[in-house]
Amino acid sequence: MWQGRVKISVNEEVAPGYFRMVLNAPQVAEDAEAGQFIHIRVNDEYDPLLRRPLSIHRIISRRLKVKSLKLPDIEVLYEVVGKGTKILAGKRPGEDLDILGPLGNGFKLGCVSGTVILIAGGMGVAPLLALAEEIRREEKVKDTYVIIGARTKALVLCEDAFRDLAAKEVQVATDDGSRGYKGLATDLLQELFSTLNLKLSTTVYACGPEGMLREVAALTVAKGVPCRMSLENRMGCGVGACLGCVVRVKSLQSGVESYKRVCKDGPVFEAGEIIWE
C-alpha cells in the first residue's frame, strides 16, 4: 500500500462519457493484482471531500528513455457520473494526482483451470480486462469466454482488447440491439451455460451494475458454478477503518450472517456469499 502524488500521462475519452487515464505509478503497479483498486483524491479542495475508488483496469509497461528499463503504469477506466469524476475528466496529461493503493482483495485466481467466463456490464469491463491479462498466463485455463453488456453500441468498451487477449469468444449484448444481441448480458450467460458441459471445471468472474450481478449470482449458484464478483460501493477511507462501505454476507462455511467491508474484505466476493438487499 502506497500513497503519494503521481503524474497523469494519458486522460482521454474513449466513449461518450467514458475516460481512460494512465498514471505513472510503479509504486502501486508493482504490487497490484486484478480486482484491486486505487483511491484517488481528485483535487486538494474540500468539495468533493472523499477519495474516489477506481478499479485497476490494466497494468502497462512503460519503457524509459535511459537504458532499456521498463516501469509498470496503472491504467484506470471511469465514467463521468458526478462531481468527482467530472473533475477527473478535466485533468490534463502532466498534472499530478494523489493516489492510494493498491487496495482491497483482488480476484485471486488460485488454481483456476478449464473454462473461464468473464461477464461485464458497462464499466464492469474495468477490472475484468486486468483479470483477462492474468488469465492469459494461466496454463491450465483452456477456453476464455467474454460477455460484455452495454446500453448501446457506442458504450461497448474493450471488445477488441478482450479479443486480443485470445479470448475464445467475445459476445456483446446491448439494451437497444445496436450491437450484438439485443437484451441482457445475463441472457447470453444463460445461453452459454446451456452449450457448455458445466460438470467440467468452469469459473465465472463478473463485474457490473447490481441488477446484473444479482442475476449472475442467481444463475451461477443454481448451476453450482463457482463465481467471483467485484462489487462497487461508496467508500470512506478505502482501507477498512471506517466501516462505511459494508455489504451483507452469509458465510459459505458457517452460514453466519455479517457485514463485510467492500474496500478491505472485497471488493471481490464469492457470488454465493452476498445477501442482496
Binding site: 471506517c242 462501505c245 459494508v246
Partner: peptide, 23 residues
C-alpha cells in the same frame, strides 16, 4: 455489534454523514 444496514455513509458539501451504528 453488527452495526446499521448500508448505505452507511454519504458525502455532503465539505463533509460526510455516517451512520455506522457501533459495528
Amino acid at each position: 455489534r453488527q452495526g446499521n444496514p448500508p448505505p452507511r455513509i454519504v458525502e455532503t458539501p465539505a463533509g460526510m454523514l455516517n451512520a455506522i451504528g457501533w459495528e
